[in-house]
Amino acid sequence: MRSNEDNAGLPPVARLLLAIGMVAIGLVLAWALWSHSETSSSLAAAVMTELPRSGVSNPVTAVLLNFRAFDTMLELAVLLLVAVTVGGLRDPREVSAFAQVKQAASVSPLLQSLARDLVPIMMLTSGYLLWIGAKAPGGAFQAGAVLAAAAVLAHLSGRPWLSNPGDWRIRALLVLGTGAFLVSALALLLVTGTYFRYPPALAGAWILIIETAATLSIAAMLYVTFCAVVPMMPSRR
């Protein structure tokens, strides 16, 4: 454990000591788990009693978007931070190469037809997951992930949704999620006097609006970071 700073090519002795240390950590953790396996500290009852007032009937969505909305807002802020950092790491010369992906004569026809059939279905699935998140498993995160996967597939098949990573539209989408949370919190501060206490009658619609914004934001962020990592295709073959 002490030697984790300079571990370029650890000698076998250090590896052995490290392995022994790891086993020790594992045993301590297992003992802790074992000794606490009987104690129950579930918040399920608390969530279930409050669930009718949250505006949705899926407990996970209720926790994410209502009971712990502040956490979710900060989580979207983390995503925004990552997108901004990745943008800052971009080589300025990359932008010119970026637009050339469009031509993409090298993409196989199989991938192209697959993307043509699958991308609309994935977008539909994303919308469905967003809508069903109020009642059944689903929600903003899953919908955003599926939407981002659709964008990635379209990108790989040579029809990127984004020709310039500095486009103002993509930037607007990136701040949309955090922005919607902030605006809603401030509006609620004016109306009800607290940041994240939704009026029960309007909570369902309110949550759906924020979730839609969060979905678009999550998808945009995942797509932007993917675009930053993906190698540029050779423009000429």
Binding site: V63, V78, V82
Partner: peptide
């Protein structure tokens, strides 16, 4: 099942993938 850890893990997964993307970049 307790939905609060589920919500935590759900945000955790998304944060993990963004951290991975940042590290890869």
């Amino acid at each position: 099942t307790d939905p609060v850890p589920h919500a935590l893990v759900l945000t955790g997964i998304v944060v993990a993938v963004s951290a991975t993307a940042l590290a890869l970049k």
